[in-house]
Amino acid sequence: MLVVDALTKTVPGGRRVLDGVSFSVGAGEFVGILGSSGAGKSLTLRAISGLTELDSGEVRFACEDGTMCCVTRARGKALRAARRQMGVIFQGLHLVKRMTVIENVMMGRLGFIHPLRSWLYGFTDAEAREALEALDQVSMKPLAGRITGSLSGGEMQRVAIARAIFQRPRLYLADEPIAALDPRNAEAILNLLQPLSRHNPVVSTFHQPELTRRFCTRVVGIREGRVVYDGSPELSRSELAGIYGIREAQAV
């Protein structure tokens, strides 16, 4: 489904922020990427959707026609074709705050729409109805007409998920989907993401391991740009120390 192969990236200061990151994701998986801040979790996710230039390494992804295509080397149309199969759930601030909730959801399918049509009048009524269903799935249907900027953080996160659902991708990528949320909201969001992974795999980064144990099928631990753990979400104390370092592991 998705193969991440030896991603390497060096920042101008000479520091290696990604140092041979490799893992693969198959159907039905909910993969949690764990690590402390600055370990390279988010960067890995950005590399998968082709938002970051890499020094070396490859991301391969099963495309529409079933063949594996290389995201890392794709440009222009090919890159867009790969990207529209990946639903990215960023933190809430990635929504356009001045537009309505339903418009933000419908933007999920921009990659499939001819640009000319999207400039002229945006979206069709059929798409609006579908977007409403997607919002219903995250129980945001009553707020569909609201201006997005007036929502709370948890609500915005739901809208971001609705956008990804509406996009109908073959893979979901979520970047710290629960970072800014209180425990109850965080659990609710994960309860939305988990069923999605039954049809299409979900790869999500997390700062803390408590909830990954309950929701993920697999955990990938990253430390200083290297994969240090890949396996069951039931992490032992020493495995946690391997991901976070000893002092921080005691804290979490």
Partner: peptide
């Protein structure tokens, strides 16, 4: 951020401008 999010889901450059940059700059 919003324009980047649209880029990540496969929107073209012009669509990013039309749906993320211009609506924010409109006022």
């Amino acid at each position: 951020a919003p324009a980047e999010a649209l880029a990540a889901l496969g929107a073209s450059r012009s669509q990013q401008i039309c749906f993320a940059v211009l609506p924010q700059a409109a006022p």
